[in-house]
């Protein structure tokens, strides 16, 4: 297998704080990989490094074998990395459908001229294609029936799913999910579990940050553990669960006693 995403000694400092310190990490094509760690360990910062919100201070990040470190976020997204946010960042004033259509932005090409020539067949064809894609993505997270609701009126769990649909509309090779199950009830988590599996089955590699251990253990092929910006373990769920360093840092001392 080839690594789809590769972090090579990735480091970022904010002033004196080393938020992410020399992390080496591979995400293989077609797997579900999870990143766990205590609060403030730097998990979301790693996502922000990958998506270009912050450029790494040191080290490299490559995607599909090409370096993406220091590229602008929109270039990285266009290259095929979709993401969701820990604190939901939907386009609140817009409808559910518009949110996903914006996710499909990189799948279209008509710009200002397209807007002014809206009635011409090529522009209408593209609009139709984006619409089909958006609705397809919405049905993947079971939200198609809410297409015309305003995004901010959705309940919390559905807002999280809408973020996933929006990221899927990029038609990404890799999707980054930042705490997708946060704030969901057990039933919603179960649905989400199936959805994430289906997303992987449709050929998208999944890389997620999550706090819910049960969720992560049941879903992931591999887990990496982060503590104070340093990767302390990496492996199959059962290996990670048995790793003493992980138990001490994350699950708590004495958990095995």
């Amino acid at each position: 297998m080839t690594a789809l995403l590769k972090l090579d000694n990735a480091t970022i400092r904010f002033g004196g704080l080393v938020a992410v310190n020399g992390v080496n990490l591979d995400v293989e094509e077609g797997e579900i990989m999870a990143l766990i760690g205590p609060n403030g360990a730097g998990k979301s910062t790693i996502f922000n490094l990958i998506t270009g919100i912050y450029p790494p201070t040191e080290g490299g990040i490559s995607f599909k074998g090409k370096s993406i470190a220091g590229l602008q976020p929109h270039v990285i997204a266009g290259g095929g990395i979709g993401r969701t946010f820990q604190n939901i960042r939907l386009f609140n004033e817009l409808t559910v459908l518009e949110n996903v259509l914006i996710g499909a932005h990189t799948r279209g090409s008509w710009n200002l001229t397209g807007a002014l020539l809206k009635l011409l067949p090529p522009v209408r064809r593209e609009e139709g294609r984006l619409l089909e894609l958006a609705i397809h993505c919405l049905s993947q997270v079971d939200l198609a029936h809410k297409a015309y609701e305003q995004a901010c009126n959705l309940p919390y769990g559905e807002q999280r799913r809408l973020e996933i649909a929006r990221a899927l509309a990029i038609e990404p090779a890799l999707i980054l999910l930042d705490e997708p199950a946060a704030g969901m009830n057990p039933q919603e988590k179960q649905t989400l579990l199936t959805m994430v599996r289906n997303i992987r089955a449709s050929g998208v590699t999944v890389f997620l940050v999550e706090h819910d251990m049960k969720f992560v253990m049941g879903l992931s092929d591999r887990i990496a553990v982060l503590d104070y910006g340093v990767k302390i373990a990496d492996g199959k769920p059962e290996e990670v669960r048995a790793n003493p360093a992980v138990i001490e840092a994350y699950l708590g001392k004495g958990a095995t006693n």
Binding site: T51, I53, I102
Partner: peptide, 20 residues
């Protein structure tokens, strides 16, 4: 249009917009 949606996305959330 696609152009207008991009503008509205920028209005609502710049970080989300560039991540799209």
């Amino acid at each position: 249009s696609r152009f207008g949606r991009a503008l509205k996305a920028i209005r609502d959330d710049e970080i989300a917009a560039e991540s799209m």
